[in-house]
Design a protein around this nucleic acid. Structure first.
Length: 299
DNA sequence: AGATGATCCTGTATGC
DNA sequence: TGCATACAGGATCATC
């Protein structure tokens, strides 16, 4: 499942490999993977455009192009893959979009479950810089942001950036009885965490995933912010986690999986205390944790 | 208003 | 052995 480290790894590979490449033709085989605008406009606007660089916001990949400037926004969701390949290479199953490049290569979008989406925007339509926090401190209460087309317009701070602080997190947790895991998975709170790294961060911070968010103390929140940063930094360094589907822009799997402490390790010994890693359901998600290191959910 | 559940989708794993 | 069902999950939408 591509989360921030996986998307960042794809970004880096494509930023290196795609810069300067010009699109000659766009073939959309599955119309439902194009989220905006309509398919014909999407294909027509991109034909002839040239890639200038790759960015990322949360789990969204942002491929910049000229003229326009345009931004091709890609969300891989669960099983999406964006891979640059030689057309002679065997095509992955469930290939839905092909960008033929002037140099002969193909950028392919494949997605078994077809949950992922591709969007095309004029750069001017996208929020400038960091979208999430309104800047002014203590802006409690109603965030009067209107409901916008999709999540990209309503993202919280980057977890590896300066705006993601224990104070920010504390403000989002105050008074909430929802499990802390639910809060951390909310992309409006912090942009880029998914099921794997949330479980890993909670383990590193020694916080039980089902703890009501409003009951966490300042020290726990500080630990959590540090743990989120540490986990994501290490995962980026190891180029992401591959279970079944994830590969980077060159088709290579990530190297983080053997280093995960709890995710996917139910029944195996905790790396810290040797107690069996447990699995439960929190916020409708499979949740992995160490019952000894991460204490009680309640109180 | 905040939280929960259904929805999308298909490969893989489990159950009988 | 084979078929049927459960499960995985990010984000969105409907419904408490």
């Amino acid at each position: 499942m591509p989360e921030l480290p996986e998307v960042e790894t794809v970004r880096r590979t494509l930023d290196d490999d795609l810069a300067g490449a010009r699109i000659t033709r766009v073939e959309v085989r599955s119309r439902d993977v194009i989220g905006h605008p309509d398919v014909d406009t999407f294909a027509a606007e991109l034909a002839g455009a040239r890639f200038t660089g790759a960015g990322r916001r949360g789990k969204y990949l942002l491929l910049r192009l000229v003229p326009g400037p345009l931004v091709l926004v890609v969300h891989l969701r669960m099983t999406g893959r964006l891979v640059l390949a030689d057309p002679a290479d065997p095509e992955p199953p469930h290939t839905h979009v092909i960008f033929a490049l002037a140099d002969g290569r193909h950028l392919r979008y494949a997605d078994v479950r077809r949950f992922g989406r591709l969007y095309l925007y004029a750069a001017a339509e996208l929020p400038a810089g960091v979208v999430g926090p309104a800047g002014a401190g203590g802006a409690t209460g109603a965030s009067q942001a209107p409901r916008l087309p999709h999540g990209l317009f309503n993202l919280g701070p980057e977890p590896l950036g300066a705006a993601f602080t224990s104070r920010w997190l504390a403000d989002r947790c105050r008074g909430r009885r929802a499990p802390i895991k639910t809060v951390l998975l909310d992309q409006r709170v912090v942009a880029g965490l998914g099921n794997i790294y949330v479980d890993e961060a909670l383990f590193r911070a020694r916080v039980h995933p089902a703890r009501p968010a409003g009951e966490l103390g300042p020290q726990e929140l500080r630990r959590l912010v540090r743990a989120v940063r540490a986990v994501l930094r290490e995962a980026v360094e190891r180029r992401g986690t591959t279970f079944a589907d994830y590969v980077d822009g060159r088709g290579r799997p990530g190297g983080m999986r053997p280093h995960l402490a709890v995710y996917g390790r139910a029944g195996e010994p905790c790396r810290r205390c040797r107690a069996a890693v447990a699995r439960m359901r929190v916020a409708g998600r499979g949740t992995h944790f160490c019952p000894r290191c991460q204490g009680d959910p309640g109180v």
